[in-house]
Design a protein around this nucleic acid. Sequence first.
RNA 1: GCGCCCUUAGCUCAGUCGGAUAGAGCAACAGCCUUCUAAGCUGUGGGUCGGUGGUUCGAUUCCACCAGGGCGCGCCA
Length: 588
Amino acid sequence: MTNIFADIRTIVLAALRQVLPDLPDDVAARVEVTGTKDPAHGDMATNAAMVASKSAGRKPADIAAGLVALLQTEPMIETAASAGPGFVNLTLRPDALRAQIPLILAQREAYGESDIGGGVKVCVEYVSANPTGPMHIGHCRGAVVGDALANLMAKAGFAVTKEFYINDAGGQVEALAWAVYWRYLQAIGTGMTEEEYAAVVPGGLQYRGEYLIPVGETLAVVHGDSLAAPGKTSARSELWFATVRDTALTMMLASIREDLDLLGVRFDVFSSEQALFEKHATDAVIERLDQLGLIYQGTLEPPKGKLPDDWEPREQTLFRSTQFGDDVDRPLRKSNGTNTYFANDIAYHADKLDRGFEILIDVLGADHGGYVSRIRAATSALGGQLDVLLCQIVKVLKGGELVRMSKRAGTFITLRDLLDEVGRDAVRFTMLTRKSDAQMDFDVDQAVAQTRENPVFYVQYAHARCRSVLRAAGESMDTTPEALAQASLDSLTDPAETALIRRLASWPRMVEGAAQAREPHRIAFFLYDLAADFHMLWNRGRDDAALRFLQADHQDETSARVALVAATAMVIRSGLSVMGVTPVEEMR
RNA sequence: GCGCCCUUAGCUCAGUCGGAUAGAGCAACAGCCUUCUAAGCUGUGGGUCGGUGGUUCGAUUCCACCAGGGCGCGCCA
């Protein structure tokens, strides 16, 4: 595990303890070593003197002076200087920074891995689309964000499980079965009209999309007319319901998994709501909460403002979520005694805790915003920790126009449409170029553009250029990582080279910060900046032939630069693999 | 009406649990191809960080209130 920031922080902390032997641990924990914005401030800066000032009762400048004196003597540090309100700026010895290159080459794409996760078991739940239809663009962002977050946390040393929760119980599955049964009747050539059929469906016919036609046809092939009443009309639901529902769920889930596969998302675990239902998990968890004194029978206040038309006060089984920061207590059982979705979801989260996960993460759509505080409350009540990432709406733009998505108008964009148009890598990368809780416009034209505007292209281009140099170098030298790690790096002194090395060295710190903040989008921005550093260096070689990577007459310089290029390619690949994007070898 | 999220350059967005002179891309202007990919690079201009207070050595960052945008609001999942 390589992390030069962590190494320097250890050194700074040791020095701080010499200056202040009574340093409290909580103060020590706040000591940071960060990169600098301004090269004039050196390579790194630490806030150590400032954070320790208050508890030590000494001026920051005073402590900083003590630190500077000690840090000056460190072999990795060339100069230390106090500055501003009490920063200590550090300039590393050039060879200390360059020494990161062989370390990167030795670790390859594993570079950036960290142990801050400490092997803590984390369950990241995402997508969890209802198995009632194909995946649409609304699911896409959550799928990509969740998948990248899971990868990111795994890289940071958490023991991550990727999980998909199948909502295969409840009203919408019933509605699905009725919708599929209609497609079945059509497939066997029923004489009923859609209106006649809809009239017998409890709650009305939903899910009228054509994607259910193949399910009906499959049922017709397997079961012939046997699921219908004589005359090919609708039979009593007891006769066909379970068969139709199970076939529909199986086929819908298969289709979702196919879509996920195309997106490059693979889950470790698919959890079934129905399975929990059969174990009576919800009743069990309500019992558990009851024993904690968190359940009561009561009547909720009507919601403020606009009332539902049929509002009337009714007594329900309620959970005291207000004790855990929610605004109102929430119903677990409906007035007819059946469990609410919330209750079932508590059972599911309890199930995850029972499986030994210490941190639960749910990636949800923004339309679940109002749901967050109650499910977090429930998880806290059960002694767990739940982090929620809300993914805001994605608007799709094409030709500068907003592409309207409406199920009613039948113009909803499926995930597959988007993948066909833009490609998996561009979809994944673009979805990670915004903070997940910020609204996003997905510009289809930009995602396929081959210019710097398009971060996917820009990063891929940098990687392709690296590979191009390595291919060319490979004709006259050994470009295996093992061989390059032996190169003498003393010639890497150009500011553009140093900037690139500094960026590479900050990758492990970036991974840790992004994982702790649960912000996978930071990886995309890091790679973009890294690509910019590399493109700049590349073009320096255009202006000044002496800065080109391959120097026919200077073997040492060439190997040093090729080693740098190889390390750059590895870090790009390391980052892309977190994002689930495939690096390209060449642009075409 | 209540709750949650958001507001940073003309546009789209970064900004590392509070840190030094707030950064990119696009758009505008001025440059760089006998060369490992010019699908790129360099430079210039552009900001009361939505507003007003507060917390402290220090606030784009934390808190309160206000304005604007989005999402939701008992027996849907």
